[in-house]
């Protein structure tokens, strides 16, 4: 991005996208790629992919790739613009929902809403996990590692950071 009008265009577009990001920011990833790489040539497709991979490494929400895209395209100003755009729905819609919920958690409709949405959200959650498992693992070694992690997590109370470290070692040893 070369000037502040670019930054404004970038901010407004990301602001719109973040209100559409129902179910997480992976849903709007293709649209962000089209906007930043194909339409505006702010970053290369390789840089876009790298930003996504690096953000998965950082702790915190998966959506942090949005911050990194902003940083790659426009430095600190870009990073802040992207993050503020990402937080806008949370600061408005979620806080409003939280207020309604705290005031009247036992209203019959609120209860039906939560009970009804819970299984659908769980299905979507597992669908996301499934897509992630398939996008990471290219060979059967990776699937085995994933499967072992699932079983061990369900059977033990160990701190999972140990499992992640083990996974990193297995990767370095050339297992995956």
């Amino acid at each position: 991005m070369s000037d502040s009008s670019d930054l404004l265009v970038f901010f407004l577009h990301f602001l719109m996208l973040s209100f559409l990001a129902v179910g997480g920011f992976s849903a709007v990833l293709p649209e962000m790629h089209r906007f930043m790489v194909e339409n505006h040539h702010w970053i290369s497709s390789q840089d876009f992919a790298a930003a996504y991979a690096i953000a998965q490494l950082a702790p915190g929400p998966n959506a942090m790739y949005v911050t990194l895209l902003g940083w790659k395209a426009g430095g600190w100003a870009g990073a802040i613009a992207a993050t503020v755009a990402m937080l806008a729905p949370v600061a408005t819609i979620t806080i409003w929902a939280a207020r309604m919920h705290t005031r009247n958690p036992d209203a019959p409709f609120a209860q039906a809403l939560r009970r009804g949405l819970a299984p659908v959200a769980l299905g979507l959650f597992l669908a996301g996990a499934w897509i992630l498992v398939n996008s990471i693992n290219t060979g059967w070694h990776g699937y085995i590692l994933t499967l072992v992690a699932i079983v061990v997590v369900l059977r033990t109370k160990l701190n999972p950071l140990w499992f992640l470290a083990t996974g990193a070692l297995a990767g370095m040893a050339g297992f995956v």
Partner: peptide, 18 residues
């Protein structure tokens, strides 16, 4: 390579949570 191994385990954590 370390990142790939860690990602495979991280995906397992996500499934187990579900």
């Amino acid at each position: 390579d370390a990142i790939v191994g860690m990602s495979a385990v991280a995906a397992g954590l996500l499934v187990a949570t579900g």
